[in-house]
Simulated assay, not measured.
Amino acid sequence: MQLLAIGECMIEMSGGEDGCWRLGFAGDTLNTLWYARAGLHPADGPVGYFTALGTDSFSDRIVDFLDEAGIASGAIRRIPNRRPGLYMIEQKDGDRAFTYWRDTSAARGLADDAEALRAAMRDARMIYLSGITLAILPAEGRARLLDALRAAREGGARIAFDPNIRPALWLDEVEMRDAITAAAAISDIALPSFDDEARWIGDADPAACARRYAAAGSGEVVVKDGAGPVTILSEHAMTDMPVPPAAKVVDATGAGDSFNGGYLAARLNGSTPVEAARAGAAMAARVIAAHGAIIDLPETSDWQTG
């Protein structure tokens, strides 16, 4: 398998105009995998998603959605009497507002079975997760996931990690920082966002953020900074890559996730970190020019089975 993403796929309800809502499916790690497909080819191996879902009709619809997109879903755990999380996006005061229902989502049990975790990761060239993946798990599940990732890395997989800091999902900031640092320590690629890191960790600038993740153990650090330059620390060399101005901004949802997808696909294909950052920035520019976290791209047609 070229790339396995681990996290939570949620039911997305967007719109709300005239009481009408559009149903979709999204989640930060799924969004990244969605866009990584655009730079990969099925002839080089499958891509897959690992999570936990229920046995209800909406969980079935998520599996069908993944299968039709050419994303391997066979390893997903199915937990009776549990359901996917849900969130709604509506416009308030000229901006997007999000409301979540995820406290008892099936995805919180994705790491309950250690053998299922290890089986899902087997033969993956790269495994991608985020701070949200860690945050939704109970402490014992989080430890189980990190153990499985260490074993996969020892077996040759590369680990990619976006801290995606969301304090509301954590018990407290100490737990959040400790878990993110533990994941960074076993990551070959870290993909933090400077605005999150500055606000919650206190980094003075993107370079300080990159050095902190490198000191924690991340071999390659790529710091996103909105429309600002991407800061890359790799093999002890620091590079600032300017991001071309976006021609059109319609919806910033998924900007960081799509950058990650473009970046990871390029790295899997042998691009240098700077070349991969250019690919990531180009992907993000396409995504923010349209509505929604997940948009269709012509390059993914080879993957689609539906």
Rank of each mutant, 00 (worst) to 15 (best):
G94E: 10
S130P: 01
D302H: 12
G24F: 06
K224R: 14
D205F: 12
R158A: 15
I11Y: 00
D123L: 08
I6Q: 01
R96W: 09
F25P: 00
R144C: 15
G261E: 02
R158F: 11
L3S: 01
H236Y: 06
D103N: 13
A179H: 11
L4P: 00
I89G: 03
A182E: 15
A183K: 10
A216W: 15
A285W: 01
W21M: 14
G45D: 04
Q2N: 12
D188H: 15
T305V: 13
A281D: 04
A111E: 03
T104F: 08
G262D: 11
T55M: 11
V243P: 01
D302G: 15
F25S: 00
G85I: 00
P46D: 09
A75G: 09
L129D: 00
A204N: 11
D251A: 09
I6H: 01
R144N: 15
G141P: 05
A143P: 04
T239D: 12
S73E: 12
I186G: 11
T99S: 14
L66D: 00
R96G: 08
D296S: 15
G48T: 05
G39Y: 01
K248A: 13
A282G: 08
R278V: 07
P138E: 15
L146M: 14
A277L: 13
I127C: 00
G109V: 05
A284V: 08
L191G: 02
S73W: 08
K248W: 04
D257R: 06
E140P: 01
G280W: 01
A277S: 15
T29E: 00
A190T: 06
T305K: 12
A277K: 06
I165H: 04
L171N: 13
A139P: 06
D205S: 11
I189N: 06
V250Q: 09
G7Q: 02
L191C: 13
E90N: 11
P298Q: 09
G48V: 04
D95N: 12
R22L: 14
W200G: 08
D172N: 15
R108Y: 08
A277T: 06
K248G: 02
T300I: 09
V249S: 07
D18L: 14
S57Q: 14
L40A: 02
A255K: 02
I132E: 01
